Amino acid sequence: MNYTVNGHTTYCYTGGKSFDAGKPTVVFIHGVLNDHSVWILQSRWFANHGWNVLAVDLPGHCRSEGKPPASVEEAAGFVLALLDAAGIDKAALVGHSFGSLIALETAARAPQRVSHLALVGTAFPMTVSPALLDGAINAPQRAIDMVNTFSHSLLAPPPSSLGPGTWLQGGSRALMRRVLASNREANVFHIGFKACNDYANGEAAMAAVSCPVLFVLGESDQMTPPRAAKLLTAKARGAKVVTVPAGHALMTEAPEQTLFALKDFLGA
């Protein structure tokens, strides 16, 4: 489904379902060099179990037009504009990595618009190494390989994810190359990483969040290890923390555990 947000076309995967104002809504927000497809199992399940689903392509990524957000704050403004464009008063937000910071900032800015906040593979500060920041500009293919090495603890997912024998790292590399190539005017790789690295409002934002909060963390995550979320978990009031057997690519490495954590949290 396409919406016009800030004057540009924004694509959201809906699980093939039409919007129903009588149903609750969940917005899935992807991370750097990803798109809506990283949520394929989770978004499809919610779309078929009583929820409106908006799994968004961020601006300047794949099917969405506009400039890629240069900061977490700018991206949070986009999410609120998306809710306005879709006519949604209140939604649950689920974000992965960069998307988790966007979801957090959105919930802090407009607590009355967010019913639940789920942070998947998160950290604060979300520091990006100088080698990756430089590689995103000067050697993006090598940097993509580095990210995938750090992001995966498995080569093939369980059968419930993308199919038996699927090569997780190969699929993720292909997706990241496709997302990078989708924007010839801006380097969404470096822009996204820099936005993560520069974000400084995490603790203050979490203190302003008023809705229930869930953390889903990968026990083998080298990009955002569970210990790196401690500043946020300490600020979150009554938050639930679920650790799953996965690296940073939680949605494909532990698809059922990630889905069950979200399902239980949202009461679906």
Rank of each mutant, 00 (worst) to 15 (best):
240 K>N: 08
38 V>I: 15
234 A>T: 14
5 V>A: 06
159 P>F: 08
226 P>Q: 01
91 A>L: 06
120 V>Q: 00
27 V>E: 01
226 P>Y: 00
93 L>E: 00
226 P>R: 09
159 P>C: 10
222 Q>H: 15
158 P>A: 14
104 L>S: 02
243 T>K: 13
30 H>N: 07
191 I>F: 07
63 R>A: 14
54 L>C: 08
230 K>R: 15
228 A>R: 13
62 C>S: 14
225 P>D: 01
192 G>V: 07
88 I>R: 07
246 A>W: 03
21 A>P: 05
28 F>W: 06
193 F>L: 13
264 D>G: 12
186 A>F: 12
189 F>Y: 05
31 G>P: 10
209 V>N: 02
210 S>C: 13
214 L>E: 01
67 K>C: 11
178 R>E: 13
34 N>A: 15
169 Q>L: 13
122 T>P: 02
33 L>R: 00
66 G>N: 05
103 A>P: 01
84 D>Q: 09
202 G>H: 02
32 V>C: 07
53 V>Y: 04
220 S>D: 03
67 K>E: 14
90 K>S: 11
256 E>F: 10
97 S>I: 09
217 L>V: 10
130 P>G: 12
232 L>I: 13
105 E>D: 13
27 V>G: 03
158 P>K: 13
25 T>Q: 08
44 R>I: 12
6 N>H: 11
219 E>L: 12
177 R>I: 12
130 P>W: 09
92 A>F: 00
180 L>G: 09
45 W>K: 10
125 P>D: 03
90 K>Q: 13
97 S>L: 06
106 T>S: 14
65 E>Y: 07
83 L>N: 04
50 G>E: 02
193 F>W: 07
34 N>Y: 11
56 V>S: 02
64 S>W: 06
208 A>P: 03
247 G>T: 01
176 M>K: 00
257 Q>D: 10
267 G>I: 10
84 D>S: 06
240 K>G: 08
129 S>E: 07
169 Q>M: 15
219 E>P: 05
231 L>D: 12
35 D>L: 09
217 L>D: 02
77 G>W: 04
